[in-house]
Amino acid sequence: MPCRRPFTFGFVLFPNFAMLSFSSVIEPLRIANRLSGKNIYHWELLSLDDQAVEASNGLLFTPSLQVEQWHDLDAIILVAGIGTSLIADQRLFKWLRDIARGERLLGSTSTGSILLAKAGVLKNKRCTIHWEDQANLQEEYPELIVTHELFEISGNIMTCSGGTAGLDMMLSLIERQQGSRLAKSIAEQCIHPTIRPAHDQQRMSIEEALGIHSPALARAIEIMQSHIEDPVNCESIAAMVNISNRQLQRLFKHKFGLTPATYYLQLRLEHGDNLLCKTSMSILDVSTATGFSSTSHFSKCYRKYYRMLPRERRKQVATG
């Protein structure tokens, strides 16, 4: 139902936050006010230390509300980006738990879901995150219900995959609060003719993303992507897609200039690199999560591909 006073959002900005994610969640509120001719929504910017925050594109944003005034807010949205996995502020996590215990909306966009997971407020809640970080979040927090949705609204917790998905999440929320007519009018103003449902795809299909015209090749890559931790040999993959192993070899050689085994190994190493950079998992756990029989084997293959050891990569990430 429409609020008697403006429904107030607090956007908590973290260093290197993604500008596209931020624009997608704040602009629908501005447009809602303009189209309705009323101040339905109000918003404030916050940062943990009440100091200016620099976005990933270098623009600087100054907080408009101090963190200690958060009780004046109806909803709090974490806007994060690169480097979120390195944040380990226990005061932040306690604050998020305090918010979650109340009736306020608590949400995130993009990698902000990592902070909610660290705070322990996503237990028994459906949540989502940018596709690039989905496997990482699930590996580090296996008890979570991590989905591939564009956004999730579970009780008073909202999570969003980031990018333009924030627009769909906010339109869904506005539709609940103000009705579909206003939500659709906002979408049209944004040149967004279709309000995407939560279950819409985050990513292009393999065929579109890689320019593949062979269904067998696309299916083979899909099998590889879904068996990172428990690798399948190439003969079995060929059988699964109903072609010979020799034909599988030809398809990969023609499209990528690589054997299927080499392509598969690179997928696993790239996933391992993602885990090293974006989680606190031990190198032993990373090697297991990428299907290697030992840490030494993982380190050897990783060094050959990335020209550095996994521990050197971790040090590189820690020092920025």
Rank of each mutant, 00 (worst) to 15 (best):
R268K: 12
N274V: 01
I283L: 11
Y306R: 13
Q266A: 00
K315H: 11
S280H: 14
R303D: 11
S294R: 03
L265G: 02
L248F: 05
L284T: 10
L258S: 06
V286G: 07
A261G: 11
A261V: 03
P310M: 04
K300D: 13
A238I: 00
M308P: 02
V241R: 06
L309Q: 10
L276E: 08
Y305G: 04
R303Q: 15
T259M: 05
L284E: 10
H254I: 09
L276T: 10
K278M: 05
V317Q: 12
Y306V: 04
Q249Y: 06
I243H: 02
S299L: 13
M240N: 01
C277A: 14
L258Y: 05
T259C: 02
Q247D: 11
A239E: 11
Q247A: 15
M281H: 05
K278Y: 15
Y302S: 06
P310R: 03
D273I: 00
T279Q: 02
M308T: 11
R268A: 01
L248C: 12
S293Q: 10
M240P: 02
D273E: 13
Q249G: 01
N242H: 09
K304V: 07
R303V: 00
L309M: 12
F292T: 00
R268W: 00
Y263A: 06
Y263P: 07
S287V: 02
L251H: 03
F292D: 07
K315S: 11
D285C: 05
S293I: 10
S296A: 15
T279R: 05
L276I: 15
S244A: 00
L267W: 02
F298C: 03
M308C: 13
M281V: 02
E270T: 11
G257Q: 07
I283N: 00
R314A: 04
S296K: 15
L284H: 12
Y263M: 03
Y302H: 11
D285Y: 06
T288Q: 14
M308G: 07
A238K: 03
D285S: 09
K278Q: 08
K278C: 04
S299N: 14
C277D: 11
L265Y: 01
L276F: 00
C301K: 14
K255Y: 05
L258R: 12
L284C: 01
V241A: 09
T290F: 02
I243L: 03
R313F: 03
E270R: 14
F298K: 04
T290S: 09
Y264E: 12
S280W: 12
N242G: 01
R314D: 04
Q247R: 13
G272V: 09
Y302A: 11
